[in-house]
């Protein structure tokens, strides 16, 4: 039998909510702990040996020198580095301050699990794929796929600032299914058409500022790149 994969879980600048999602996988935790060799996980235990890792999960944005040092150190020791949470993937809320940057600005990120917080199901599927020796599947569709499959009325069409078409799916359209417009907490989809979304929202009577505040809240970096090109 091959050795259990050595796992480390780390947090940079963030609320630790994504690490908490793993701790909250109560029904699956024993199975996971049997399958992996959990080395470093400050949130869950006090003895945290640091060394070579097969997989590192890193939460949070890089906002200070110590974050960058930790990230580079983890990267140098890990075969696979996975960004967990929108702060790690996109810079998230810290990006708005102008100081927070995503992990991929500094090191190679092998897979990204976005979300604020991440979805338990996506995390578990990712762990299962890694145990099988595969990189997890990417979820390239926007929130609208799952939203339409759930037969929700379109909130963007109804005149709300719904970020669904711009946002990475995988949450099973959690908010629109409760009749709440998508806030975009999972970060940008693979192909966000910010220009069209802005034009639609401006037609619905929203100001440029209102639109920017919502669309750029979690995915500021993607919005700056794509969304500010037109008017």
């Amino acid at each position: 039998m091959k050795a259990k994969p050595r796992i480390g879980i780390y947090g940079l600048t963030s609320c630790a909510g994504d690490q908490l999602v793993l701790v909250n996988c109560e029904d699956e935790l024993l199975t996971i702990l049997e399958a992996v060799d959990l080395r470093s996980f400050v949130m869950a235990h006090s003895d945290n040996p640091e060394g070579e890792l097969d997989v590192a999960f890193v939460e949070g944005a890089v906002t200070q020198e110590s974050d960058l040092e930790t990230l580079k150190d983890v990267r140098s020791r890990a075969q696979i580095l996975i960004a967990i949470g929108t702060c790690a993937v996109w810079g998230g809320i810290p990006y708005l301050s102008g100081m927070g940057t995503p992990l991929s600005d500094h090191v190679q990120v092998d897979y990204a699990i976005p979300g604020c917080p991440i979805e338990k199901t996506q995390l578990l599927k990712a762990i299962a794929s890694l145990l099988r020796g595969d990189l997890p599947l990417s979820l390239p569709h926007p929130v609208c796929l799952e939203c339409t499959i759930r037969e929700n009325n379109c909130l963007l069409q109804a005149g709300e600032i719904c970020c669904g078409p711009l946002t990475a799916g995988g949450c099973n359209a959690r908010c629109p299914s409760l009749n709440r417009a998508c806030f975009g907490c999972r970060g940008a989809s693979h192909d966000p058409n910010y220009v069209s979304a802005r034009q639609i929202l401006e037609k619905h009577g929203f100001s440029v500022n209102e639109v920017r505040q919502r669309l750029a809240l979690f995915s500021g970096k993607a919005y700056e790149k794509e969304g500010t090109q037109v008017g």
């Binding site: 569709h141 926007p142 609208c144 796929l145 339409t148 669904g164 078409p165 058409n193």
Partner: peptide
């Protein structure tokens, strides 16, 4: 240019 590529038309 207008298409959000949301896929709702396909679904």
């Amino acid at each position: 240019k207008d298409c959000l590529a949301c896929g709702r038309c396909s679904m």
